[in-house]
Design a protein around this nucleic acid. Structure first.
Lengths: 229, 229
DNA sequence: CCACTAAATGAATGCCGTTCATTTAGAATT
DNA sequence: AATTCTAAATGAACGGCATTCATTTAGTGG
């Protein structure tokens, strides 16, 4: 039975003695960290389409079935990758800057990390925090920042969830084709929409996803900021 | 070459004569509408895991390969389903109610429709509007409402995109397990987060996803409402 | 009646994630 | 040093998947 994707040190029995290893421990070719890093590298090189268990095994010079001694499914690997990526999200501003600036830098960083990994979003969005320790650590840092800023306790989680939802949705936008709003031959039947698209284009912003993200994020920050005690 | 998922009536040549049908038109067993409805029904009964091209063909009493005369890929079927579902999103309030109330009812309805179809979100989020006429119609209704409410033209699209991003992200939350924030054995190392989760639970809301959605939506409505001229 | 062709079939392809019986090799115990 | 134990590797196999393609079928326009 392979270790599931939970805490790395697994007490699991009540006494806290250092785990006694039996069997053949030392020269293992594979472990969860190695798998995670190889997966991340493979995804970087081949994308999520090229990310298969067989391909992952190949980069590790191992048979595909060997992976299943350390991981219980492909989804499990994705969870490991997700949690690893979350450690790249910058929460440092919550220690050093006022609340609104901290939220801003956290949100932009969070969106940027996962806009390159949108296939993970359906996984993260419904993942129990117990299965992702680094993600939990991020939540702790953010919660602490909200708390310190005088946010009412009972609304902290809801506010974070709302921000996160906006961030995940916005991560998809980054990957959308530039002409996603070109109404083409149906322009005559959609005058208001077509006009609005044209007016946005007039502004000549290189990156429309950033404009929408900033607009929404500032509204959320302003709205939530008003809740602080 | 099967018709791609674009406008149902395909001019494609400059003269507007009614398309001349040749060959064997009348008694076709299959068409895009029939495929769409059968797909929606199958998804309702078997979920997205049970939704395979083979299963879809079976419900239509047809060989799997026959589908490819009307649809170019499984993704294509998903696009058809997505566009069909979008016609269930309620935009009627934009004709009858003040802007903020209209946005509210549209957003809740939009979230509710797709919270039952989250696997479509990665498809919708990056789909050119040309490939989804009913979705385009929704955008037109919403754009018209924003315009009528005195919203600055050049910001209408960005505001809609931001709202949509929040809606998509929030649709995932609806499907998340209830104990998603239970930090389990790591509670001691995450005191702020754990306390905030407990305080939210104290409130005893049956549905935490709704609370977060409302909080975020109201912030966005308030923030965007201030932009109106 | 003929020619044409859209739309159906059914077999085949290549890939996928995953399972399982089996082997291997090093540590722990004696 | 020999024996025992077992985590971790292998490789073959499985069922299922989306998709392709040569072929057949059956109406329609000429």
């Amino acid at each position: 039975m392979p270790a599931s994707t939970s805490a790395p040190a697994d007490p699991h029995r009540h006494d806290a003695k250092p785990r006694r290893r039996v069997g053949r421990p030392a020269a293992a070719v594979l472990d969860q960290d190695g798998i995670t890093l190889a997966a991340l590298q493979l995804i970087g090189k081949s994308g999520y389409d090229g990310f298969t268990m067989a391909a992952l095994a190949r980069t590790l010079n191992v048979a595909p079935s060997a992976l299943y001694n350390h991981v219980s499914s492909k989804r499990d690997v994705l969870v490991l990758v997700q949690d690893h990526l979350t450690s790249f999200v910058d929460v440092s501003a919550f220690d050093a800057e006022p609340w609104d600036r901290a939220v801003r830098s956290w949100a932009w960083s969070y969106r940027d990390v996962f806009s390159k990994h949108t296939p993970l979003i359906p996984v993260i969005a419904v993942l129990p925090v117990t299965d992702a320790p680094k993600t939990l650590a991020m939540y702790e840092a953010v919660s602490a920042g909200f708390s310190r800023a005088g946010f009412p306790q009972e609304r902290i989680i809801s506010a974070i969830v709302a921000l996160e939802s906006f961030i995940f949705g916005s991560a998809y936008d980054v990957t959308a084709p530039a002409d996603i709003f070109d109404s083409g031959s149906m322009a005559e039947s959609t005058p208001n929409f077509t006009a609005a698209v044209a007016r946005l284009a007039d502004q000549g912003h290189e990156n429309q996803a950033d404009v929408a993200f900033e607009l929404g994020l500032e509204a959320l920050i302003a709205g939530f900021g008003a809740l602080r005690g």
